Simulated assay, not measured.
Amino acid sequence: MPKISLATVARALDAMLDGQMTAQARIAAHLVAVAEASGHDAAQVIETLEAIASTTVLDEFWITDEQGMAYLTNVRDATGALMPFRFNPNPAVQPQASKFYALLGSPIESDHVITQSAQVREIDQEIYKYVGVNGVDRKRIVQVGNALAFEEHDLQSGSYTSPVMTAVMAAFGEPDLLDFAFTDQLDEIRVVFEEILGKQIIVQARLVEHFVTGAEEAGWPTEEINGRLLRIVNSSPLDEIHVVSMPGDTVYSSLRSPLACETPAGLPGSDELSSLLDGTNKVVDQPTAPRASDGALYKYVTVAFANKPRFVQLSLPIDDGTLLSPRYNPASTGG
C-alpha cells in the first residue's frame, strides 16, 4: 500500500480550502454589492453575514470600504460590539493582514485573489486561514476566514472519525512538523476531505441563495444575475451554478444558455433530489463520482432555499491528482 506524508495531507487540505474559500469570497463580493445597491444599510448586511456564519462552517467575514476599514463583519468582541479592524499595508504593523491590502488597488472588473496558508493568527494565537478578493462594485477587500477549530470540533465529536486526520489537524498550521510522519490510510483521509469539502460548498450555496434573493429585491434582470453567476464560476473552482424551482424549470444558471433539461429531473444526481422536493432534507451532498457523460470526477451539492421553494446546485470538478480522487496515486505526485 503506497504511503503519503502527513505534511502532504496538510498542504493538500490547505490547498483545497484555498479554492473553496475563494469561491465563498467571490460570492460574498457580489452579495454585498447587490445588498448595498438595493439600499440595505450596514446593519442589514451584517445581519445577513451573521445568519450565514451561524448556520455554516464559515467563521468570519471582513469586508471593507475604500480605505480598508472593515465596516461589514460578523465578528464581535466580548461586549457584543462589532470588532473594529482596519487593514494596514505595513507588514511591520500587520505581519499577516497587510498582505490583503493590495486588493484595494484592484479594478472592480478584475477578479484578483489573495490566499494565505493556515497559520497562527497574530492577534490571539489561534490557527486561522484567510482568503480575500477585490470588490466588484467599488474598491474594497472582501475577506473570509476559517478557524481550524471547526475541523477540530468535528473530529473530536465524531463527525470525522480519523486518527490520521486528528494528527494532521494538530499541526495544521505548521505542516513541516509532519514531514517525517507517513500513512497509508488514503481511504480514511479521502472520507474526511469529502466531508470538509461538502460543508464548504454548503457555505457557497447559502451565499448564492442570499445573493439571488437580494438581486431579485433590487430588480436585477435575469441576464444580469446569470452573468454574475458566470463570473463567479469563471473566477473560482466551481464549474456550474443552477438555481431551480421545486418542482419546475431553471430560474438562474451560470450557463450562458440554460438547457431545457435543466429541471430537477435533468440535473446531475436528480434521482437523489427527491428528498429536497418533498421537504424531507435541506441538503443533498453527493459523494465525488465519475460524471456519466465523460467519466470526469465531479462533486455535486444541492441545498434548498430557506424561505422559497427553490434549491441551488453547485458542481465542482475533482482533479485526479488530488487526495479527493479515488484515482490518486502518491507515486505519481511525489507524496
Rank of each mutant, 00 (worst) to 15 (best):
A12I: 06
Q313F: 02
I196D: 01
S162L: 08
P268Q: 02
P247Y: 12
L255A: 02
T333H: 08
G145H: 06
T64W: 07
N134T: 06
L316W: 03
N329T: 01
F311C: 04
F211Q: 05
Q200C: 07
R140N: 07
Q143A: 15
M69A: 13
G173N: 09
E224A: 10
L103V: 06
M169Y: 04
V120P: 00
F85Y: 14
L229W: 01
A118H: 03
D124L: 10
L197E: 03
K282R: 14
P221E: 11
L207N: 00
G321D: 12
S38H: 10
A181M: 08
K139N: 12
E47F: 02
Y328A: 05
V57N: 13
A289T: 02
A28C: 10
S5L: 11
A260H: 09
P91G: 04
A29C: 11
H242I: 03
Q96M: 09
S235E: 02
Y298I: 11
L155F: 13
S245Y: 05
D137Q: 14
V244P: 00
P107H: 09
S245C: 02
A97R: 05
T73D: 03
V312N: 03
G80W: 14
I123V: 10
M16Q: 13
D41W: 08
T22Q: 15
Q44P: 01
Q156L: 12
V136H: 11
D278S: 10
E223T: 13
T288A: 09
M169D: 04
F182E: 08
V136N: 04
T250Q: 11
L297E: 08
N74D: 12
G334M: 12
R327Y: 07
T288P: 00
G227R: 07
G158H: 10
V9Y: 05
T333P: 03
I63D: 02
P2M: 06
E122H: 13
V212P: 05
V164R: 11
D154S: 08
I46S: 03
R228A: 11
V32Q: 04
F182Q: 11
A331K: 15
A7Q: 15
L230C: 01
M69H: 14
P287M: 04
G80P: 04
L230E: 07
D41Q: 12
P95F: 07
V57D: 15
